[in-house]
Design a protein around this nucleic acid. Structure first.
Length: 419
RNA sequence: GUGGGUGUAGCUCAGUUGGUUAGAGUGCCUGGUUGUGGCCCAGGAGGUCGAGGGUUCGAGUCCCUUCACUCACCCCA
Protein backbone atom coordinates (compact mmCIF):
# COMPACT_ATOMS: atom_id res chain seq x y z
CA UNK A 1 0.00 0.00 0.00
CA UNK A 2 1.22 3.44 -0.86
CA UNK A 3 1.97 5.73 2.04
CA UNK A 4 -0.30 8.66 2.66
CA UNK A 5 1.68 11.79 3.42
CA UNK A 6 0.64 15.00 5.09
CA UNK A 7 -0.68 17.88 3.02
CA UNK A 8 1.90 20.27 1.62
CA UNK A 9 2.82 22.98 4.08
CA UNK A 10 1.11 21.11 6.90
CA UNK A 11 3.57 19.42 9.20
CA UNK A 12 3.76 17.15 12.20
CA UNK A 13 5.43 18.34 15.34
CA UNK A 14 7.05 15.18 16.66
CA UNK A 15 7.51 14.10 20.29
CA UNK A 16 11.12 15.28 20.23
CA UNK A 17 10.02 18.85 19.64
CA UNK A 18 6.83 19.13 21.67
CA UNK A 19 8.55 19.76 25.02
CA UNK A 20 9.93 22.98 23.56
CA UNK A 21 6.49 24.10 22.49
CA UNK A 22 5.12 23.25 25.91
CA UNK A 23 7.85 25.13 27.72
CA UNK A 24 7.31 28.27 25.66
CA UNK A 25 3.58 28.07 26.09
CA UNK A 26 3.94 27.69 29.82
CA UNK A 27 6.19 30.74 30.04
CA UNK A 28 3.88 32.76 27.83
CA UNK A 29 0.85 31.92 29.97
CA UNK A 30 2.70 32.84 33.12
CA UNK A 31 3.71 36.25 31.80
CA UNK A 32 0.29 36.96 30.32
CA UNK A 33 -1.22 36.17 33.69
CA UNK A 34 0.94 38.83 35.33
CA UNK A 35 -0.13 41.36 32.75
CA UNK A 36 -3.79 40.55 33.30
CA UNK A 37 -4.35 39.01 29.89
CA UNK A 38 -7.03 36.35 29.76
CA UNK A 39 -7.29 33.46 27.37
CA UNK A 40 -9.99 33.25 24.75
CA UNK A 41 -10.40 30.24 22.49
CA UNK A 42 -11.93 30.82 19.12
CA UNK A 43 -12.95 28.57 16.22
CA UNK A 44 -10.71 27.71 13.31
CA UNK A 45 -13.51 28.14 10.79
CA UNK A 46 -15.28 31.44 10.26
CA UNK A 47 -17.59 32.96 7.71
CA UNK A 48 -15.52 34.25 4.82
CA UNK A 49 -17.16 37.63 5.14
CA UNK A 50 -15.41 38.21 8.47
CA UNK A 51 -11.97 38.25 6.90
CA UNK A 52 -13.01 40.10 3.79
CA UNK A 53 -14.34 42.90 5.93
CA UNK A 54 -11.72 42.71 8.67
CA UNK A 55 -8.46 42.21 6.82
CA UNK A 56 -9.47 43.96 3.59
CA UNK A 57 -10.54 42.69 0.17
CA UNK A 58 -7.46 44.00 -1.61
CA UNK A 59 -4.89 42.38 0.68
CA UNK A 60 -2.82 39.41 -0.48
CA UNK A 61 -4.18 37.30 2.33
CA UNK A 62 -7.79 37.67 1.24
CA UNK A 63 -7.08 37.85 -2.45
CA UNK A 64 -5.04 34.72 -2.86
CA UNK A 65 -4.05 32.96 0.35
CA UNK A 66 -7.20 31.92 2.16
CA UNK A 67 -8.55 28.39 2.40
CA UNK A 68 -12.12 29.16 1.46
CA UNK A 69 -14.79 26.68 0.46
CA UNK A 70 -18.50 26.42 -0.04
CA UNK A 71 -19.96 24.48 2.86
CA UNK A 72 -22.74 21.94 2.37
CA UNK A 73 -25.11 24.54 3.73
CA UNK A 74 -24.24 26.73 0.75
CA UNK A 75 -22.26 29.19 2.80
CA UNK A 76 -18.69 30.36 2.21
CA UNK A 77 -16.40 29.45 5.07
CA UNK A 78 -12.70 30.15 5.59
CA UNK A 79 -10.02 28.57 7.72
CA UNK A 80 -8.74 31.52 9.71
CA UNK A 81 -5.62 33.17 8.24
CA UNK A 82 -5.14 35.22 11.42
CA UNK A 83 -6.77 35.59 14.81
CA UNK A 84 -7.57 39.25 15.35
CA UNK A 85 -10.73 39.32 13.27
CA UNK A 86 -12.10 36.28 15.11
CA UNK A 87 -11.27 37.68 18.53
CA UNK A 88 -13.05 40.91 17.67
CA UNK A 89 -15.98 38.98 16.29
CA UNK A 90 -16.30 37.07 19.56
CA UNK A 91 -15.87 40.27 21.55
CA UNK A 92 -18.75 41.87 19.68
CA UNK A 93 -20.92 38.75 19.47
CA UNK A 94 -20.87 38.17 23.23
CA UNK A 95 -21.11 41.86 24.12
CA UNK A 96 -17.94 41.64 26.18
CA UNK A 97 -17.62 45.41 26.14
CA UNK A 98 -20.86 45.68 28.16
CA UNK A 99 -19.34 43.56 30.91
CA UNK A 100 -16.07 45.44 30.97
CA UNK A 101 -15.04 48.19 28.57
CA UNK A 102 -11.45 47.06 28.80
CA UNK A 103 -10.49 43.60 27.59
CA UNK A 104 -7.04 42.06 27.39
CA UNK A 105 -7.18 38.78 25.54
CA UNK A 106 -4.79 36.16 24.21
CA UNK A 107 -5.21 33.10 22.09
CA UNK A 108 -2.80 30.49 20.80
CA UNK A 109 -3.40 28.25 17.85
CA UNK A 110 -2.97 27.35 14.19
CA UNK A 111 -3.59 29.74 11.30
CA UNK A 112 -3.84 28.86 7.62
CA UNK A 113 -2.54 30.62 4.55
CA UNK A 114 -2.00 28.98 1.20
CA UNK A 115 1.44 30.34 0.35
CA UNK A 116 4.41 28.54 -1.11
CA UNK A 117 6.20 26.99 1.87
CA UNK A 118 9.77 27.95 2.70
CA UNK A 119 11.96 28.44 5.75
CA UNK A 120 9.79 29.82 8.55
CA UNK A 121 6.66 29.70 6.46
CA UNK A 122 4.08 26.95 6.49
CA UNK A 123 0.53 26.73 5.27
CA UNK A 124 -0.54 25.77 8.75
CA UNK A 125 1.44 27.81 11.22
CA UNK A 126 0.89 28.85 14.79
CA UNK A 127 0.47 32.21 16.39
CA UNK A 128 0.42 33.57 19.88
CA UNK A 129 -2.01 36.43 19.67
CA UNK A 130 -2.70 39.30 22.06
CA UNK A 131 -5.37 41.97 21.77
CA UNK A 132 -5.88 44.94 24.10
CA UNK A 133 -9.34 46.38 23.55
CA UNK A 134 -10.97 49.55 24.81
CA UNK A 135 -7.87 51.58 25.56
CA UNK A 136 -6.66 54.33 23.33
CA UNK A 137 -3.94 55.74 25.55
CA UNK A 138 -0.46 55.70 23.98
CA UNK A 139 0.90 54.21 27.18
CA UNK A 140 -0.99 51.04 26.29
CA UNK A 141 0.93 50.85 23.02
CA UNK A 142 4.20 51.19 24.91
CA UNK A 143 3.13 48.69 27.54
CA UNK A 144 2.17 46.14 24.93
CA UNK A 145 5.47 46.38 23.08
CA UNK A 146 7.41 46.44 26.31
CA UNK A 147 5.75 43.25 27.48
CA UNK A 148 6.43 41.62 24.15
CA UNK A 149 10.14 42.44 24.24
CA UNK A 150 10.31 41.25 27.82
CA UNK A 151 8.56 38.02 26.90
CA UNK A 152 10.84 37.28 23.97
CA UNK A 153 13.85 38.10 26.09
CA UNK A 154 12.70 35.73 28.84
CA UNK A 155 12.42 32.99 26.26
CA UNK A 156 16.08 33.46 25.46
CA UNK A 157 15.89 35.31 22.16
CA UNK A 158 18.68 37.70 21.43
CA UNK A 159 19.40 40.49 19.01
CA UNK A 160 15.82 41.44 18.44
CA UNK A 161 15.06 44.62 16.60
CA UNK A 162 11.85 46.48 17.41
CA UNK A 163 10.82 48.75 14.58
CA UNK A 164 7.92 51.14 14.95
CA UNK A 165 6.04 53.58 12.80
CA UNK A 166 2.76 55.43 12.72
CA UNK A 167 0.33 54.81 9.92
CA UNK A 168 -1.97 57.71 10.78
CA UNK A 169 -5.72 57.47 11.07
CA UNK A 170 -8.82 57.61 8.90
CA UNK A 171 -8.46 61.38 8.72
CA UNK A 172 -4.84 61.81 7.74
CA UNK A 173 -4.04 58.59 5.88
CA UNK A 174 -6.26 59.15 2.80
CA UNK A 175 -4.65 62.54 2.18
CA UNK A 176 -1.20 61.04 2.49
CA UNK A 177 -2.15 58.19 0.24
CA UNK A 178 -3.11 60.61 -2.48
CA UNK A 179 0.15 62.47 -2.10
CA UNK A 180 2.17 59.29 -2.51
CA UNK A 181 0.09 58.08 -5.41
CA UNK A 182 0.55 61.40 -7.16
CA UNK A 183 4.29 61.33 -6.55
CA UNK A 184 4.65 57.80 -7.86
CA UNK A 185 2.37 58.26 -10.85
CA UNK A 186 4.90 60.78 -12.15
CA UNK A 187 7.64 58.17 -11.81
CA UNK A 188 5.69 55.09 -12.78
CA UNK A 189 8.22 54.08 -15.43
CA UNK A 190 10.89 53.46 -12.82
CA UNK A 191 8.77 51.05 -10.81
CA UNK A 192 8.78 47.30 -11.12
CA UNK A 193 5.79 45.47 -12.49
CA UNK A 194 4.46 44.57 -9.06
CA UNK A 195 4.69 48.10 -7.83
CA UNK A 196 2.87 49.46 -10.83
CA UNK A 197 0.03 47.13 -9.91
CA UNK A 198 0.22 48.21 -6.27
CA UNK A 199 -0.09 51.80 -7.34
CA UNK A 200 -3.74 51.10 -8.03
CA UNK A 201 -4.45 48.73 -5.15
CA UNK A 202 -2.29 49.58 -2.17
CA UNK A 203 0.33 52.23 -2.98
CA UNK A 204 1.71 52.34 0.56
CA UNK A 205 3.08 48.86 0.11
CA UNK A 206 5.58 50.16 -2.43
CA UNK A 207 7.59 51.41 0.53
CA UNK A 208 8.26 47.75 1.36
CA UNK A 209 9.43 46.72 -2.10
CA UNK A 210 12.92 45.23 -2.15
CA UNK A 211 13.57 46.13 -5.77
CA UNK A 212 16.48 48.59 -5.93
CA UNK A 213 15.01 50.86 -8.52
CA UNK A 214 11.77 51.08 -6.58
CA UNK A 215 13.64 51.84 -3.38
CA UNK A 216 15.52 54.60 -5.12
CA UNK A 217 12.32 56.04 -6.49
CA UNK A 218 10.47 55.83 -3.23
CA UNK A 219 13.34 57.27 -1.24
CA UNK A 220 12.32 60.71 -2.42
CA UNK A 221 8.66 60.12 -1.77
CA UNK A 222 6.73 61.76 1.02
CA UNK A 223 6.85 59.81 4.27
CA UNK A 224 3.73 59.26 6.33
CA UNK A 225 5.25 60.52 9.57
CA UNK A 226 5.52 63.95 8.01
CA UNK A 227 1.85 63.99 7.10
CA UNK A 228 0.01 62.52 10.03
CA UNK A 229 -2.41 64.79 11.83
CA UNK A 230 -1.71 66.54 15.10
CA UNK A 231 -3.45 63.96 17.22
CA UNK A 232 -1.71 61.04 15.58
CA UNK A 233 1.59 62.81 15.90
CA UNK A 234 1.06 63.42 19.58
CA UNK A 235 0.03 59.82 20.08
CA UNK A 236 3.16 58.57 18.35
CA UNK A 237 5.42 60.86 20.36
CA UNK A 238 3.88 59.62 23.58
CA UNK A 239 4.42 56.03 22.50
CA UNK A 240 8.12 56.52 21.86
CA UNK A 241 8.45 58.52 25.04
CA UNK A 242 6.97 55.75 27.14
CA UNK A 243 9.02 53.10 25.43
CA UNK A 244 12.03 55.04 26.61
CA UNK A 245 10.66 55.29 30.13
CA UNK A 246 10.46 51.49 30.17
CA UNK A 247 13.94 51.27 28.59
CA UNK A 248 12.69 49.40 25.56
CA UNK A 249 15.06 49.96 22.67
CA UNK A 250 13.30 50.66 19.40
CA UNK A 251 14.00 52.26 16.07
CA UNK A 252 11.62 54.27 13.96
CA UNK A 253 11.20 52.77 10.53
CA UNK A 254 9.52 55.50 8.53
CA UNK A 255 8.86 53.18 5.64
CA UNK A 256 7.24 50.32 7.44
CA UNK A 257 3.68 49.67 6.38
CA UNK A 258 1.69 46.58 7.17
CA UNK A 259 -0.12 44.13 4.96
CA UNK A 260 -3.45 44.18 6.70
CA UNK A 261 -5.79 47.08 6.07
CA UNK A 262 -7.07 47.51 9.59
CA UNK A 263 -3.96 48.99 11.16
CA UNK A 264 -4.01 52.63 12.29
CA UNK A 265 -1.46 54.75 14.12
CA UNK A 266 1.11 52.55 15.85
CA UNK A 267 2.52 49.73 13.73
CA UNK A 268 5.46 47.60 14.77
CA UNK A 269 7.48 44.60 13.84
CA UNK A 270 10.19 42.59 15.58
CA UNK A 271 12.83 41.07 13.37
CA UNK A 272 15.93 38.97 13.86
CA UNK A 273 18.85 37.83 11.76
CA UNK A 274 18.41 34.24 12.87
CA UNK A 275 15.45 33.39 10.66
CA UNK A 276 16.54 33.74 7.04
CA UNK A 277 14.29 35.64 4.68
CA UNK A 278 11.22 35.33 6.88
CA UNK A 279 12.77 37.49 9.54
CA UNK A 280 9.68 38.76 11.35
CA UNK A 281 8.99 37.03 14.65
CA UNK A 282 6.20 39.36 15.61
CA UNK A 283 4.08 42.00 13.98
CA UNK A 284 1.29 44.10 15.26
CA UNK A 285 -0.28 47.46 15.65
CA UNK A 286 -3.25 49.55 16.58
CA UNK A 287 -6.60 49.09 14.87
CA UNK A 288 -8.91 51.75 16.19
CA UNK A 289 -11.56 51.35 13.52
CA UNK A 290 -11.77 47.56 13.32
CA UNK A 291 -14.36 46.87 16.01
CA UNK A 292 -16.78 49.27 14.38
CA UNK A 293 -16.01 47.92 10.95
CA UNK A 294 -17.09 44.50 12.16
CA UNK A 295 -20.36 45.83 13.51
CA UNK A 296 -19.37 46.65 17.08
CA UNK A 297 -19.19 49.84 19.12
CA UNK A 298 -16.49 52.47 18.71
CA UNK A 299 -13.84 50.66 20.70
CA UNK A 300 -10.16 51.05 19.98
CA UNK A 301 -7.70 48.19 19.97
CA UNK A 302 -4.09 47.18 19.62
CA UNK A 303 -2.53 43.78 19.35
CA UNK A 304 0.22 41.57 17.98
CA UNK A 305 0.89 38.09 16.72
CA UNK A 306 4.01 36.09 17.47
CA UNK A 307 5.01 33.51 14.87
CA UNK A 308 5.15 30.51 17.17
CA UNK A 309 6.93 28.23 14.70
CA UNK A 310 9.53 30.88 13.96
CA UNK A 311 10.05 31.52 17.63
CA UNK A 312 10.60 27.80 18.29
CA UNK A 313 13.09 27.54 15.45
CA UNK A 314 15.19 30.27 17.07
CA UNK A 315 15.47 28.43 20.35
CA UNK A 316 18.57 26.31 20.67
CA UNK A 317 18.11 22.66 21.54
CA UNK A 318 20.84 22.87 24.12
CA UNK A 319 18.97 24.83 26.78
CA UNK A 320 16.33 22.15 27.02
CA UNK A 321 16.67 20.78 30.54
CA UNK A 322 15.88 17.11 30.96
CA UNK A 323 13.06 16.03 33.18
CA UNK A 324 14.44 15.07 36.58
CA UNK A 325 11.26 13.80 38.18
CA UNK A 326 11.43 10.28 39.66
CA UNK A 327 11.07 7.66 37.06
CA UNK A 328 11.02 3.95 37.64
CA UNK A 329 11.34 0.98 35.36
CA UNK A 330 9.97 -2.36 36.46
CA UNK A 331 11.88 -5.30 35.10
CA UNK A 332 10.01 -8.56 35.45
CA UNK A 333 11.24 -12.09 34.73
CA UNK A 334 8.67 -14.74 34.07
CA UNK A 335 4.90 -14.75 33.79
CA UNK A 336 4.12 -14.49 37.46
CA UNK A 337 6.55 -11.65 37.98
CA UNK A 338 5.13 -9.85 34.97
CA UNK A 339 1.65 -10.08 36.44
CA UNK A 340 2.99 -8.65 39.64
CA UNK A 341 4.85 -5.91 37.81
CA UNK A 342 1.76 -4.97 35.85
CA UNK A 343 -0.11 -4.28 39.05
CA UNK A 344 2.73 -2.41 40.75
CA UNK A 345 3.44 -0.33 37.65
CA UNK A 346 -0.10 0.95 37.44
CA UNK A 347 -0.31 1.50 41.18
CA UNK A 348 2.80 3.67 41.09
CA UNK A 349 1.42 5.76 38.24
CA UNK A 350 -1.72 6.46 40.21
CA UNK A 351 0.49 7.51 43.09
CA UNK A 352 2.08 10.12 40.84
CA UNK A 353 5.24 8.31 39.84
CA UNK A 354 6.23 7.82 36.24
CA UNK A 355 6.58 4.08 35.75
CA UNK A 356 7.31 1.90 32.73
CA UNK A 357 7.63 -1.81 32.09
CA UNK A 358 8.07 -4.22 29.24
CA UNK A 359 5.52 -6.77 28.06
CA UNK A 360 7.62 -8.61 25.51
CA UNK A 361 9.27 -10.94 28.02
CA UNK A 362 12.77 -9.78 27.21
CA UNK A 363 15.92 -10.70 29.07
CA UNK A 364 16.83 -8.79 32.19
CA UNK A 365 19.77 -7.29 30.37
CA UNK A 366 17.56 -5.99 27.65
CA UNK A 367 15.10 -4.56 30.15
CA UNK A 368 17.96 -2.84 31.99
CA UNK A 369 19.08 -1.32 28.73
CA UNK A 370 15.64 0.05 28.18
CA UNK A 371 15.53 1.47 31.71
CA UNK A 372 18.79 3.18 30.97
CA UNK A 373 17.55 4.58 27.69
CA UNK A 374 14.49 6.00 29.36
CA UNK A 375 16.89 7.57 31.90
CA UNK A 376 15.02 6.04 34.79
CA UNK A 377 16.20 6.96 38.24
CA UNK A 378 15.37 3.48 39.55
CA UNK A 379 14.71 -0.03 38.33
CA UNK A 380 12.64 -2.50 40.29
CA UNK A 381 13.67 -6.07 39.56
CA UNK A 382 11.14 -8.83 40.14
CA UNK A 383 11.85 -12.51 39.46
CA UNK A 384 10.89 -15.88 40.90
CA UNK A 385 13.24 -15.37 43.83
CA UNK A 386 11.50 -12.12 44.72
CA UNK A 387 8.02 -13.57 44.34
CA UNK A 388 9.01 -16.33 46.79
CA UNK A 389 10.22 -14.07 49.55
CA UNK A 390 7.91 -11.12 48.85
CA UNK A 391 10.66 -8.64 48.09
CA UNK A 392 12.05 -7.06 44.98
CA UNK A 393 15.43 -5.52 44.25
CA UNK A 394 15.30 -1.76 43.83
CA UNK A 395 18.29 -0.53 41.89
CA UNK A 396 19.44 3.06 41.91
CA UNK A 397 20.50 3.72 38.35
CA UNK A 398 22.84 6.55 39.20
CA UNK A 399 25.15 4.81 41.63
CA UNK A 400 24.23 1.19 40.92
CA UNK A 401 23.32 0.33 44.50
CA UNK A 402 20.54 -2.14 45.17
CA UNK A 403 18.33 -2.84 48.13
CA UNK A 404 15.44 -5.20 48.79
CA UNK A 405 11.97 -3.70 49.17
CA UNK A 406 8.70 -5.30 50.20
CA UNK A 407 6.53 -5.58 47.10
CA UNK A 408 3.38 -5.58 49.17
CA UNK A 409 4.25 -2.20 50.60
CA UNK A 410 3.81 0.31 47.80
CA UNK A 411 4.11 3.20 50.24
CA UNK A 412 7.65 2.29 51.26
CA UNK A 413 8.60 1.87 47.62
CA UNK A 414 7.23 5.26 46.70
CA UNK A 415 9.10 6.82 49.57
CA UNK A 416 12.45 5.44 48.44
CA UNK A 417 11.89 6.37 44.83
CA UNK A 418 10.80 9.95 45.51
CA UNK A 419 13.66 10.21 47.96
C1' G B 1 2.15 32.08 -9.00
C1' U B 2 7.89 32.45 -10.67
C1' G B 3 13.05 30.77 -10.26
C1' G B 4 17.35 27.80 -8.16
C1' G B 5 18.95 23.37 -5.32
C1' U B 6 18.11 18.33 -3.53
C1' G B 7 15.72 13.22 -3.59
C1' U B 8 20.06 6.26 -1.88
C1' A B 9 18.39 2.16 5.16
C1' G B 10 14.22 4.93 10.76
C1' C B 11 18.03 9.34 10.82
C1' U B 12 22.77 11.75 8.69
C1' C B 13 25.15 10.75 4.33
C1' A B 14 29.15 7.93 0.77
C1' G B 15 28.59 5.51 -3.99
C1' U B 16 34.70 6.73 -9.14
C1' U B 17 34.80 7.24 -16.58
C1' G B 18 27.56 3.45 -16.60
C1' G B 19 29.68 -2.91 -14.73
C1' U B 20 28.33 -8.31 -11.19
C1' U B 21 25.42 -9.36 -4.46
C1' A B 22 24.21 -0.83 -3.29
C1' G B 23 27.76 0.79 1.46
C1' A B 24 29.25 3.63 6.20
C1' G B 25 28.01 6.03 10.73
C1' U B 26 24.02 6.26 13.99
C1' G B 27 19.47 4.14 15.75
C1' C B 28 16.81 -0.69 16.38
C1' C B 29 17.00 -6.25 17.75
C1' U B 30 20.09 -10.41 19.63
C1' G B 31 24.46 -12.37 21.84
C1' G B 32 29.34 -11.85 24.57
C1' U B 33 26.63 -13.60 32.36
C1' U B 34 21.89 -19.32 34.57
C1' G B 35 19.13 -12.65 36.80
C1' U B 36 21.81 -6.66 36.06
C1' G B 37 22.14 -0.67 32.29
C1' G B 38 25.91 3.05 30.47
C1' C B 39 31.74 1.59 27.67
C1' C B 40 33.58 -2.16 24.43
C1' C B 41 33.16 -6.44 20.95
C1' A B 42 30.34 -9.75 17.57
C1' G B 43 26.08 -10.87 14.80
C1' G B 44 21.15 -9.64 12.72
C1' A B 45 16.95 -7.16 10.66
C1' G B 46 16.05 -2.99 7.65
C1' G B 47 16.52 -0.25 0.68
C1' U B 48 10.70 -0.94 -5.40
C1' C B 49 18.19 4.06 -4.99
C1' G B 50 11.14 9.55 -4.98
C1' A B 51 7.80 7.79 -9.26
C1' G B 52 7.11 6.78 -14.60
C1' G B 53 9.34 6.34 -19.26
C1' G B 54 13.78 6.28 -22.54
C1' U B 55 19.14 5.20 -24.18
C1' U B 56 22.26 0.71 -23.36
C1' C B 57 24.45 -6.01 -23.43
C1' G B 58 24.09 -3.52 -18.59
C1' A B 59 21.43 2.54 -15.17
C1' G B 60 21.70 4.58 -8.17
C1' U B 61 24.97 6.84 -12.10
C1' C B 62 23.13 9.40 -18.73
C1' C B 63 18.34 11.71 -21.07
C1' C B 64 13.01 13.11 -20.72
C1' U B 65 8.57 13.64 -17.82
C1' U B 66 6.40 13.96 -13.15
C1' C B 67 6.05 14.30 -7.86
C1' A B 68 7.96 15.63 -3.22
C1' C B 69 11.14 18.35 -0.20
C1' U B 70 14.02 22.75 0.22
C1' C B 71 15.79 27.84 -0.47
C1' A B 72 14.67 32.50 -2.64
C1' C B 73 11.11 36.05 -5.02
C1' C B 74 6.17 37.64 -3.64
C1' C B 75 3.78 38.30 1.06
C1' C B 76 3.68 37.90 6.17
C1' A B 77 3.98 35.83 11.83
Amino acid sequence: MAKITSVRGFRDILPDETPKWQRVEEKVREIFFNFGIQEIRIPILEKTELFKRGIGEATDIVEKEMYTFLDRGNEYLTMRPEATASVIRAYIEHNLYEKDPVAKLFTIGPMFRRERPQKGRFRQFHQINVEFLGQEDPRIDAELMSMLMYLLGELGLKELKLEINSLGCDICRPAFREKVTGFLKDREGKLCEDCRRRLGTNPLRIFDCKNESCQETISGAPVILDFICGECKEHFEKVTEHLEILSVPSVINRRMVRGLDYYTRTAFEITTQALGAQNAVTGGGRYDGLVQMLGGPAVSGIGFAIGFDRLISMLSDADEESDVRPNIFIAALGDEAQGRAFFICNTLRRAGIRAEMDFAGRSLKSQMKRANKLSCSHTLIIGDKEIDDGTAQLRNMQDGTQEPVNIQDAGALIQIVTG
